[in-house]
Simulated scan of single mutants.
Amino acid sequence: MDVLINVFVGLHIVGIAALLGGFFSQMKAMGTGAARFTPGMLHGALTMLVTGVALVGLNQADDQTLNNIKIGVKLALLIVILGLVYVKRDEERVEKSAFGAVGALTVANVFIAVLWV
Results as ranks from 00 to 15, higher is better:
Leu58Arg: 01
Pro39Arg: 08
Gly21Ser: 06
Gln26Tyr: 04
Phe99Ile: 11
Arg93Glu: 13
Thr65Tyr: 12
Leu20Arg: 09
Gln64Phe: 14
Phe99Gln: 07
Val73Asp: 04
Leu58Lys: 03
Asp90Tyr: 05
Thr65Val: 14
Gln26Cys: 08
Val94His: 02
Ile81Pro: 00
Phe8Asp: 00
Lys88Ser: 04
Gly31Gln: 13
Ala17Asn: 08
Ala104Cys: 09
Ala45Phe: 06
Lys70Gly: 10
Ala54Pro: 01
Ala29Thr: 08
Asn6Pro: 00
Leu75Arg: 03
Lys74Leu: 05
Met1Val: 03
Phe111Thr: 11
Leu42Val: 13
Ala104Gln: 08
Gly57Glu: 05
Arg89Pro: 03
Ile5Cys: 01
Ala45Thr: 10
Leu105Tyr: 08
Leu77Ser: 09
Ala76Met: 12
Ile71Val: 14
Asn109Trp: 03
Thr65His: 15
Ala45Gly: 11
Val80Met: 12
Trp116Gln: 02
Ala98His: 14
Asp2Met: 06
Met48Glu: 10
His12Gly: 04
Val73Cys: 05
Met27Gln: 14
Asp2Arg: 02
Glu91Pro: 00
Val114Ala: 11
Ile81Arg: 03
Met30Arg: 15
Val110Lys: 07
Asp63Pro: 06
Gly21Tyr: 02
His12Ser: 04
Val53Met: 13
Ala76Trp: 08
Arg36Lys: 15
Ala113Arg: 01
Glu92Phe: 00
Asn68Ile: 12
Met41Tyr: 07
Asn59Tyr: 09
Leu82Thr: 04
Ala18Ile: 10
Gly100Cys: 11
Ala18Asn: 07
Thr38Glu: 10
Met1Tyr: 04
Phe111His: 00
Arg36Asp: 10
Met1Thr: 06
Met48Gln: 12
Trp116Leu: 04
Val102Gln: 05
Val107Ile: 15
Ala98Trp: 15
Gly57Pro: 05
Gly40Phe: 08
Gln64Tyr: 14
Ile79Gln: 08
Leu115Met: 12
Asp90Cys: 00
Leu42Gln: 13
Leu55Pro: 02
Met30Pro: 09
Ala108Phe: 03
Val50Thr: 13
Gly31Pro: 07
Gly103Cys: 09
Gly72Phe: 02
Leu42Gly: 12
Tyr86Gln: 06
Leu20Cys: 10
Gly10Cys: 07
Leu55Thr: 07
Thr47Val: 11
Arg89Ile: 10
Ile71Gln: 02
Phe37Arg: 07
Thr32Trp: 07
Glu91Gly: 01
Ala17Ser: 15
Val7Lys: 05
Thr32Asp: 14
Gly57His: 07
Gly57Gln: 08
Gln60Val: 06
Ala35Val: 09
Val56Lys: 06
Val117Thr: 01
Phe37Ser: 05
Thr47Ala: 12
Val94Lys: 02
Thr32Glu: 15
Glu91Val: 00
Glu91Gln: 14
Leu19His: 04
Ile5Met: 01
Thr65Arg: 15
Ile5Arg: 01
Leu78His: 03
Gly83Ala: 09
Leu20Thr: 13
Asp63His: 15
